[in-house]
Write a protein that binds this DNA or RNA. Structure first.
Lengths: 138, 138
DNA sequence: GTGATTGCAAATCTTTTGCACTAAA
DNA sequence: TTTAGTGCAAAAGATTTGCAATCAC
């Protein structure tokens, strides 16, 4: 039987987050976090998993993406209604969305400066700030 | 027979946009634009219409919201995946989204300043810039 | 063992579409 | 009239859920 050796730290990463390192979660974590920052939908990740020999159901992919997001391993990005994108880059950064092609690019956090922030309503704390530059082809 | 008198300019507004001022479109336009800026989903607007005596099907509400957005009468705001919000305020401004309550607030355009914009890919033009401050209750 | 996790299928929810009917120009 | 617009019901997606089977501890 072939053992799928996860990238270093996958098990720790999951257990630290309070999630059991199951075969499915490890396989998905490997796909998500091994190759640098990426944006992905549940459907895309499910296909990658299937193609890569990680047997997992689409429902579990959805559940896993939501769990990873809850514990801060992923960040959900709202681009257009009707489809959720998950971003493996949880640090401060922004997005460039090409409406013609559907492509989603990262914009480094330091290439955008927000000054003069608005006042927040009372008894609320600011979570993250989404900045999306919607672009189209000329 | 009672005539539903639309707010001043509704007919002009639609015809100027190349849309026939039908009973349904006038009724929806009145609900959308008469009471200042607002954020609304198709479902909410449909309920308001029905409650307010404007007979219109949900499918037509969807179609109308999309048409209004295409001609610039509305702006679509991506908040959370799975549901489209339409904003009657099409001028430069940003949003505050309370993730606990689902409330969506406007932030005046001049209370946020974006400096140091990123470079855009070649042969693209920037459409609009969405800035969403995600907040939660303390 | 025992409780967490998974898979599957069904259910839900939002949005779009096809087509016959109706209304605006 | 003639063409655009509407309603309905069905279709299409995306995502969630119920529950029995399975797995991690």
């Amino acid at each position: 039987m072939k053992t799928c050796r996860p990238f270093t730290g996958a098990v720790d990463r999951l257990t630290a987050a309070g999630l059991r390192p199951t075969r499915q979660r490890l396989g998905l974590a490997r796909l998500l976090f091994e190759g640098g920052n990426r944006h992905i939908t549940a459907e895309q990740l499910h296909r990658e998993a299937t193609d890569g020999g990680v047997k997992v159901s689409l429902a579990t992919v959805y559940n896993t993406l939501n769990q990873f997001t809850e514990v801060g391993l992923l960040r959900e990005v709202a681009m257009a209604a009707g489809r959720a994108y998950f971003d493996t880059n949880t640090s401060a950064h922004y997005h460039l969305f090409n409406e013609d092609t559907g492509e989603l690019f990262d914009v480094p956090g330091d290439s955008v400066v927000l000054s003069v922030l608005p006042e927040m309503p009372e008894n609320t704390v600011i979570g993250n700030i989404d900045v999306v530059f919607h672009i189209r082809n000329k």
